[in-house]
Lab assay of single mutants.
Amino acid sequence: RTAFSSEQLARLKREFNENRYLTERRRQQLSSELGLNEAQIKIWFQNKRA
């Protein structure tokens, strides 16, 4: 289980509010910017949509 920092969570929530689905390219960008792997971001979005 991933423990996200408050900064990472704030960024993910802001991104989710703008778009509930990420393109592969956007997921790669977020992964690089947040220091998370793409799978972690993908799962976070899946869980948030559920």
Rank of each mutant, 00 (worst) to 15 (best):
R1K: 14
R1L: 15
R1F: 15
R1T: 14
R1I: 15
T2Q: 13
T2P: 14
T2H: 14
T2K: 09
T2V: 13
A3D: 13
A3P: 14
A3G: 12
A3K: 12
A3H: 13
A3F: 14
A3Q: 13
A3W: 13
A3V: 12
F4M: 08
F4S: 02
F4G: 01
F4W: 06
F4L: 11
F4I: 09
F4V: 05
F4A: 02
S5Q: 03
S5A: 02
S5P: 02
S5G: 04
S6A: 09
S6V: 11
S6G: 08
S6Q: 13
S6N: 09
S6I: 11
S6C: 14
E7R: 07
E7T: 10
E7S: 09
E7W: 12
E7Q: 09
E7M: 08
E7L: 08
Q8T: 06
Q8Y: 02
Q8P: 01
Q8L: 04
L9Y: 05
L9S: 04
L9C: 13
L9V: 09
L9H: 05
A10F: 06
A10H: 07
R11S: 06
R11M: 07
R11I: 12
R11T: 07
L12T: 00
L12H: 00
L12Q: 00
L12W: 02
L12A: 01
L12F: 01
L12N: 00
K13D: 14
K13Q: 14
K13A: 12
K13C: 14
R14N: 08
R14F: 09
R14H: 13
R14A: 11
R14M: 11
R14Y: 11
R14E: 13
R14T: 11
R14D: 08
R14S: 10
E15D: 02
E15I: 04
E15V: 05
E15P: 00
E15H: 03
E15R: 02
E15M: 03
E15N: 00
F16G: 00
F16M: 04
F16N: 01
F16Q: 02
F16L: 03
F16C: 03
F16E: 01
F16W: 10
N17C: 12
N17A: 14
N17I: 08
N17P: 01
N17D: 13
N17K: 15
N17V: 08
N17M: 12
E18Q: 11
E18D: 07
E18H: 09
E18F: 07
N19R: 06
N19L: 04
N19I: 03
N19Y: 06
N19T: 05
N19S: 09
R20F: 05
R20Y: 06
R20E: 10
Y21V: 09
Y21W: 09
Y21I: 11
Y21E: 08
Y21Q: 07
Y21D: 08
Y21N: 07
Y21T: 08
L22W: 03
L22P: 14
L22Q: 02
L22G: 02
L22R: 01
L22E: 05
L22M: 05
T23C: 05
T23S: 14
T23I: 02
T23P: 06
T23Q: 04
T23F: 01
T23V: 03
T23E: 04
T23W: 04
T23Y: 03
T23R: 03
T23A: 04
T23L: 03
T23M: 02
E24V: 13
E24T: 13
E24R: 15
E24F: 08
E24K: 14
E24H: 11
R25S: 13
R25M: 09
R25W: 07
R25F: 12
R25E: 15
R25C: 09
R25I: 11
R25P: 08
R25Q: 13
R26C: 05
R26W: 03
R26V: 07
R26E: 06
R26H: 06
R26N: 05
R26S: 05
R26I: 07
R26Q: 10
R26D: 05
R26P: 01
R27G: 09
R27C: 14
R27I: 15
R27S: 14
R27K: 11
Q28V: 08
Q28F: 07
Q28N: 07
Q28S: 08
Q28H: 10
Q28P: 01
Q28T: 08
Q29K: 08
Q29W: 07
Q29I: 11
Q29L: 10
Q29Y: 07
Q29P: 01
L30S: 00
L30R: 00
L30C: 03
L30P: 00
L30A: 00
L30F: 01
S31A: 13
S31G: 06
S31Q: 05
S31P: 01
S31L: 03
S31M: 05
S31D: 00
S32M: 14
S32A: 13
S32P: 02
S32W: 11
S32R: 12
S32I: 14
S32G: 07
S32L: 15
E33S: 04
E33C: 03
E33D: 07
E33I: 06
E33P: 00
L34A: 00
L34R: 00
L34S: 03
L34K: 01
L34T: 07
L34Q: 01
G35S: 06
G35K: 06
G35F: 04
G35A: 05
L36V: 10
L36F: 02
L36S: 02
L36C: 07
N37T: 15
N37G: 12
N37E: 14
N37K: 12
N37M: 09
N37R: 08
N37D: 15
E38S: 06
E38F: 04
E38V: 08
E38P: 13
E38D: 05
E38N: 03
E38Q: 06
A39T: 14
A39S: 10
A39Y: 13
A39N: 13
A39V: 12
Q40S: 12
Q40M: 11
I41Y: 01
I41N: 00
I41S: 00
I41T: 01
I41K: 01
I41L: 08
I41F: 01
K42T: 14
K42R: 12
K42A: 14
K42F: 12
K42V: 15
K42N: 13
K42M: 12
K42E: 15
I43G: 08
I43R: 12
I43W: 15
I43D: 14
I43P: 00
I43T: 12
W44F: 07
W44E: 00
W44V: 02
W44K: 00
W44D: 00
W44S: 00
W44M: 02
F45D: 01
F45T: 00
F45L: 03
F45C: 02
F45I: 02
Q46G: 06
Q46F: 10
Q46D: 14
Q46K: 11
Q46P: 03
Q46M: 10
Q46R: 12
N47L: 13
N47Y: 11
N47H: 12
N47A: 09
N47C: 09
N47D: 12
N47G: 06
K48V: 06
K48P: 04
K48Q: 15
K48C: 07
K48I: 07
K48S: 09
K48T: 12
K48D: 03
K48H: 11
R49F: 09
R49C: 08
R49K: 06
R49I: 15
A50D: 11
A50K: 14
A50R: 14
A50L: 08
